[in-house]
């Protein structure tokens, strides 16, 4: 079977982003970029399916400027087989991301697409569902467990939803979005990092795919929300209770 997994480059989620001087974007000076954490989880799951279910080819797809090859390479170093890099400097919204993935799917014909539930920069959480709607393949969002049947014709997916856990079956080809509890991604071993350097990353332009970007969502401006000010440090529980009752009046 073939699994297509996504790889988006995002700023290190543990560092607080700041606006650039003219407020048109974020300040990327000295910024560290990483693989979107949900995509790492998706990659890990594809590798586990490969290991558990008697082999799968895992293809990593990244869309973005030249330097995202670093992140595609990290996914290959985890153990994925090969990469596809759709090279573009354009800002691609989730709708266009989904359309580009669809173009790649026409060629690759994967049985399963594993995609992050959300990119932690734009926090949209749309691409997987849009892809499912465009392709007509079933979606299983927010997966915390994926079990394949023996014939590898479908997956039983447990989903983290408001109010509990839902389990559904989706027939392949299917689109599954990864949530935090799906797995804990492995660290790449040194030999695998070396091996990844020789793995193929096929570069494609949007022209090669016959795709003209037509973003449906345009960024007008970015602003920093008002910072919440730190309040007071109380010394004792008595003081805290007094403040909550008499000052904040929340008890």
């Amino acid at each position: 079977m073939k699994i297509l997994v996504m790889c988006k480059q995002v700023p290190d989620p543990d560092i607080k982003v700041k606006l650039n001087a003219d407020g048109t974007g974020i300040n990327t000076d000295g910024m560290k970029f990483v693989v979107n954490p949900f995509d790492e989880i998706a990659n890990e799951e594809a590798l586990r399916i490969h290991e558990k279910n008697g082999g799968a080819e895992v293809v990593v797809l990244g869309i973005g400027p030249k330097d995202i090859t670093t992140q595609i390479r990290s996914c290959l170093a985890m153990g994925s087989n090969r990469g596809i890099h759709v090279v573009t400097d354009d800002v691609i919204d989730p709708d266009n991301v989904a359309r580009i993935i669809q173009k790649v799917m026409d060629d690759e014909k994967p049985d399963l697409v594993l995609i992050g539930k959300q990119a932690v920069d734009d926090d949209s959480g749309q691409a997987g569902q849009i892809l499912s709607a465009l392709t007509g393949y079933p979606q299983a969002c927010y997966a915390s467990e994926i079990v394949l049947d023996d014939g590898k014709t479908k997956a039983t997916v447990t989903r983290e939803i408001d109010g509990g856990l839902e389990t559904i079956d989706v027939n392949f080809p299917a689109i599954i979005t990864a949530d935090l509890r799906l797995n804990e991604p492995r660290y790449a071993s040194l030999p695998n990092i070396m091996k990844a350097k020789r793995k193929e990353i096929k570069a494609l332009s949007l022209d090669d795919l016959g795709f003209t970007p037509s973003p449906k969502v345009k960024l007008i401006s970015l602003t920093a929300p008002p910072e919440r000010q730190a309040g007071v440090i109380v010394k004792t529980v008595d003081e805290l209770v007094d403040k909550l009752i008499n000052e904040a009046k929340v008890i």
Partner: peptide, 12 residues
């Protein structure tokens, strides 16, 4: 966006 560290104004 960015875990609530910035607010975006977007035009659809």
């Amino acid at each position: 966006v960015y875990a609530g560290n910035l607010n975006a104004e977007v035009e659809i």
